[in-house]
Computed example of a mutant assay.
Amino acid sequence: MSDNDQYKRLIKESLKNIRKAHDENYLSIFAGAGISAGSGLPSWKKLIDILAKEIYGVEKNEDPLVLAEKFFNENGHINYYKKLKNLITSRAKPNVLHSEIVKLNPKNLITTNWDNLFEQAIDEEGMFFDVIKTDTEIRTPTGWPKFIKMHGSLDRENIVFREKDYLEYSQNFPLIENYIKGVFSTDVVILVGYSLGDPNVKQIISWVNFHSNNAKQDRGQNGVKTIYFIKTNAAFDPIEFRFYENKNIHVLYLSEFFDKKAENENSGHESELKNFFDEIKKEKRYDTAFVLDSEEIREIDNILTHFDFSALSKKIDDLTIFKNASFKNELLKCFLLFENHTDDKDIEKIHPLYRKISKKLLKIES
C-alpha cells in the first residue's frame, strides 16, 4: 500500500476519533487568523508585512515578535492599539467558518485571534458560551462550553503580540495557561486556521511537549491525546507528516480526503474546512424524535387537567428508571418536573437537568 493510500485511511480513522470526541463532549478547537481571513482581516503574515512597512517603509524579513515589539516602541500604547484596531476592525462580520465552528458547540473553543468575530457568531447563532478574555474571567464558570481568547482581546487592550508578551505569558495569564495545558490531556484537540510556522502554533507545540514529557516522568506514559493540525490546499507531505507526528501532532491534509480541486486558494480553504466540519457532525446517534404520539399527549393532558399529582409523580418515576433514556423522554421528564415543583429549592434541583438537556439540544440543532 502506498504512503498516500495509508494516509487516506489514517484521515478516515482520525475523523472517526474526532466525531466520537464531538459526540461525547471532549472536543476542543483552537482557531487561528486563517479563520478570520475570509472576513477581510489580515492573515498573520500580512499583518507582519503591514507593520514592517509602517516602521521601515518596506517589507522586512524579521522575527515577527521582535517586529511587533519595535512597532509598540515606535508608537506607544495608545497609537499601538489605535493602529491595530484600524487593521483588525470591529466592523468586520463573521464568515461561514466562524458560524460552522460555533455551531459545532465544542467543549472548548480557544482562539489566538484578537478580533470579535467569534463573539458575533455566537450571538448570531444563539449559542451559549462562557466568553473569557482575561485571566480572572476563567474563575467564574457558568457550565456552558468555554470560548477562550487565550491571547487577549483588542477591546480589552491586553493582547499577546510582542516578544515581551510571549515571554511574560505565564505571569499575565496563569489561570488560562494552566487550564489550556490541562485540555491537552483530557480532550481531542484540533488546530485550524494556522500555518505550521505560526509562532502561536510553536507556543502550543511547546506546551504539548512539556506536558507530554511530564506525563511520561510522572506516570511512565504519554498523558496527551492526539492533536490534529488541519491543512488546506496542500498535498500530503510524508516528511512533514512524520516530523510533526513525532511531536504528537497529526497533520490532516484535507485535499487528500475530499479530493476536490478548488477554483482558487480561498475557495479551497473555505470549502475544504466546511466539508470537514460537516463530516464531524455526521453519524450522530441521538434520538431526534421529539414529538409525543397521540396516546402520550392524552395521558399528559389528563394528568395536568385533573391536577393528578400522584400520577404525575409516578410518570416522573417511570421516566427516571431508564438509564439511557431517549432524548424525547429526557425532555418530557424536565417538563413534568417543572410542572410538579413546589418551591424554589425544587427549581434549583431541576435547573442542572435543563442545562444538560439544553446542551444536547444545541449539539443536535447544529
Results as ranks from 00 to 15, higher is better:
N4Q: 13
Y7N: 07
Y7H: 07
K8R: 15
S14R: 08
L15S: 00
I18D: 03
A21C: 11
A21G: 10
E24A: 01
N25A: 05
Y26N: 13
Y26P: 05
A31G: 06
G32L: 10
I35M: 08
I35W: 04
I35H: 01
A52D: 07
A52K: 05
K53M: 14
I55Y: 02
E59R: 09
E59L: 04
K60L: 13
P64C: 04
K70I: 13
H77A: 02
I78D: 14
Y80I: 07
L84F: 05
K85M: 14
L87A: 00
S90T: 12
S90L: 09
V96L: 13
P106F: 06
F118C: 06
Q120M: 14
E124C: 00
T136G: 00
E137F: 05
I138F: 07
T142W: 03
G143W: 12
M150W: 08
S153L: 08
N158Y: 08
N158E: 05
I159D: 03
R162L: 04
R162N: 05
R162Q: 09
K164H: 08
K164M: 07
K164Y: 14
D165Y: 03
L175C: 00
N178T: 09
N178E: 13
Y179D: 05
I180F: 05
I180R: 08
G182H: 05
F184T: 02
F184Y: 15
D187H: 11
V192G: 00
D198S: 02
I205V: 15
N209Q: 14
A215S: 15
N222K: 12
K225T: 01
F229V: 07
A235D: 14
F241M: 01
Y244P: 11
N248S: 11
I249R: 05
E256I: 06
E256M: 12
F257S: 00
F258I: 11
D259G: 06
K261Q: 13
S267H: 02
G268Y: 08
E270H: 03
S271V: 11
E272D: 07
F276A: 01
I280A: 03
I280N: 04
K284G: 10
Y286I: 07
A289M: 13
A289D: 14
S294C: 00
E295C: 01
E296W: 06
I297A: 01
R298T: 09
I300A: 02
T305I: 10
L312V: 10
K314W: 03
F322I: 13
N324Y: 14
A325S: 14
A325V: 06
F327Q: 08
K328R: 15
L332Q: 06
L337R: 12
H341K: 15
D344M: 13
D344F: 12
I347R: 12
E348I: 09
H351L: 15
L353Y: 07
K356V: 01
K359Y: 04
L361G: 01
L362S: 09
E365C: 03
